[in-house]
Amino acid sequence: MSEPRPHLLKVKNLKKYYAARQGMFGDGSGTVKAIDGISFHIEQGETLGLVGESGSGKTTTGRVILRAVEPTEGQVLFRLNGGGITDFTALPKQALRAFRRNVQMIFQDPYSSLNPRMTVRDIIAEPLVVSGLAKGSEIDDRVRQVALRCQLNIEHLRRYPHAFSGGQRQRIGIARALVVNPKFVVCDEPVSALDVSIQAQILNLLMDAQQEFGLTYLFIAHDLSVVEHVSNRVAVMYLGRIVELAPTSKLFYQPLHPYTEALMSAIPDLDPDRMMQPKILEGEIPSPANPPRGCHFHPRCAYAQEICKTTVPEFKEYKPGQFAACHFADQLQLQGALKSN
C-alpha cells in the first residue's frame, strides 16, 4: 500500500430523491431514493471504482457530485492542491460556474454525449470558452494540443461527430473533459458501449492521462474486470447505498459484504476450467421506489438473519481501509473473485 495521500474529495451523507411516477394517474405516490445517504472520500491522484447493478444509483452519484443534478441532501467537499476546502454543494451560481473548470465528466454513451450540431473543434473548445480560460488563437492551440494527446487527427477538427466511430467519439469526449486541465473527472462507464478491441485503447488513454496530468477519477462501471484493472479502491453500490468500500486488492480477495461476494461470483471467468460458481441471488434487484426495510439486501442474502429485516446495518470500517454495511461483516468468511496463494 502506498502512503496515504491528501483527500481531494469528500462526500458526506449524500442523498438524491426523485418523485416516483407511479400509479395509474402518475400521481407521484412515493419517492425513488436513487441515492440514499452515501459517504466516502477520494484521495488525490487515485481512482475510486464504483460498481453495482443497473439502477443502483451509480450515474446519479456521479451527476450529483458534479451538481449536474442538485442533491436532495448532503455535502460534497473539494480540497484542491491541498488548499482550502470548498463546499461544492453550497456554492452560489457564479462561484459554482467558476469552480466547474476543476471538475469534468466523461459519459457512457458516445452518441448522446456529443452535440451532433457542433464541430469537433467547438465541442472540445466549449469548456475552455465558457470558463474564459483562453481567448482567440489560444483556444485553437489548446484544442489542437489535447486533440493530439487523445490521438485524434487534428485535421478532423472541422468535422461533425457523425463522421466518427464510437471509439473516436469517446476520445472527443475525453478531450473535451481534459481541455481545461481539471483536477477531478467522473468517468461514467466510459467503455461500456465500446467494442472489446476499442475498450483497451480508451482504458489506456484514460490511465495515461491520469499519470500525465495527475488526475483523480471516480470510475463508474458495471464490469468488475475493468474496475479492478483501473481502480485503487472500489465502492460497491446496492439500491442507492454503498455496501462496501475497500482497496481493490482487499476487495477482490476478501470481500466483507455478501453482495460483493455474490457480484464477484457472477463474473464469467476467462478460464473455462474455473467454472463460475455463482452464488445465485434470490430474485432480482428490487425497485428503489420501494426498497426492503432493514438491510436493503436481506431478501436476496444467503446469510440474512432476523436482525437484517429490521435494522439498517451501519456503514463502518471493519479492517483498515475496508468499510462495509453488514451486521455480520466481521464474522463471515466470504469468497472473493481472486484467491491469494
Binding site: D195, V196, S197, A200, L224, V226, H229, L270, L338
Partner: peptide, 25 residues
C-alpha cells in the same frame, strides 16, 4: 491473440497498460 491480450483480466492486468488493438473496425 490480440483480442485476448486486450481484455482486462482479474488479478493479472491491474494497473498495467493493456495491449490494445490499434485502429478501428
Amino acid at each position: 491473440m490480440d483480442l485476448l491480450r486486450a481484455v482486462p483480466r482479474l488479478g493479472k492486468t491491474a494497473g498495467q497498460r493493456l495491449v490494445a488493438i490499434e485502429g478501428s473496425i
